[in-house]
Design a protein around this nucleic acid. Structure first.
Lengths: 194, 194
DNA sequence: CCTATTTACATACATACAGTATGTATTTAT
DNA sequence: ATAAATACATACTGTATGTATGTAAATAGG
């Protein structure tokens, strides 16, 4: 019962995911071939197709790992004890910081919807970062007794705005300008400040 | 001087763009092959590669045509005579309506950034729909004397929210909920209403 | 109006990738 | 100890992209 195979498999899986991630964020999904991935990883295409159903499945595994890490970063700075406005602001900043990890914007925001379909990426997001945002919006609206707007819709629009901020900053925009605009949106849309 | 070639070329170009558009919105860019495109169009791959540098160039031409049409729809309902708040609301609704033309969300919002890169699609947007939005935001902020926020950043975040609303509606969400949330964002973020 | 050149394609070819089928050595279970 | 399952490697097939080349029609020039 030395249990060598599970560790071996997991090591190969992570190796393929790490190697493919590097290539995907440099050249994109479609311009990265499986021969190049396995060559850099030091294995063969047989290993890749043993661990993953196809190239998209490998991409999905990479995105899922990434989405979980982003959500963990957000939740680590937004304990339930934090006042809701502080949680919203801190959570938003944590999201922007998390999205500065190289490649995350490209993987999660640009290539993801195209390669896996919008539904699959939305599902990933709703289970991670977007969920934390929605919980915050629901709390904020409930605390101030505002029931004239759909928390889901408002949270979704804010989530898109945050995504765009991450992309703008990545493209070289002034981060402080976008942070200010985000605070303005949070404060006004959620009724913290008018 | 009968000038037959320019018309012939333009007809073939539009035929290829129309045919490819149908396939791209059904199966996506990478799952649509050039053999299938030219087969449906009734020409050969020689014609395609005569008029377009490559498959991506064909895709870019389709997106540019689409972006221009969306901007025209918006500008047709927002004459300069309209009060700025009305223009913002009407323009936003016109955008949502324009994006309900089948395939537009997929082409402009999902596949575009992945296939052409974010910079190229941003350039297209900044020359069309996003430009009309930014002009409106600048007017609104100037009229109410709010200079404590970057019009570019705020307009960019709102643009992303509108994009998301179009996607949500396409995925079956309640359109009126998203329209309400959009009005709330416009009114509060731009200071029309607190 | 006749000829040279350019345009608008069609055809043929080289290269490369995705996915699958099959073979093999190493673990693991019995 | 042996049978079965696992973790790969190798070989093959089909299809796509981009390019090079060939050809008929259109246009320009003298």
């Amino acid at each position: 019962m030395s249990r060598k195979n599970p560790e071996r498999s997991e090591a190969t899986r992570q190796l393929l995911m790490d190697t493919a991630r590097n290539l995907f964020i440099q050249k994109g999904f479609s311009d990265t071939g499986t021969p190049e991935i396995v060559s850099q990883a030091g294995v063969t295409r047989g290993a890749l197709y043993h661990h993953f159903a196809d190239k998209k499945d490998l991409f999905h595994a990479i995105l899922e790992r990434e989405a979980i890490q982003v959500a963990e970063d957000i939740e680590s700075v937004t304990p339930p004890s934090l006042p809701i406005r502080d949680a919203m602001i801190q959570g938003s900043f944590a999201y922007l910081d998390a999205m500065r990890v190289p490649g995350r914007t490209r993987l999660l925001l640009m290539e993801g919807p195209s390669v896996l379909g919008l539904a699959a990426v939305t599902a990933l997001d709703n289970a991670n970062a977007a969920r934390t945002l929605r919980e915050g919006v629901e709390t904020a609206l409930a605390e101030t007794g505002q029931h004239d707007v759909s928390a889901q819709a408002l949270s979704d629009l804010l989530s898109a705005a945050f995504d765009r901020a991450a992309l703008a900053i990545e493209l070289g925009a002034d981060a402080s300008e976008y942070r200010s605009a985000m605070i303005r949106l949070i404060d006004r849309a959620l009724g913290f400040q008018s």
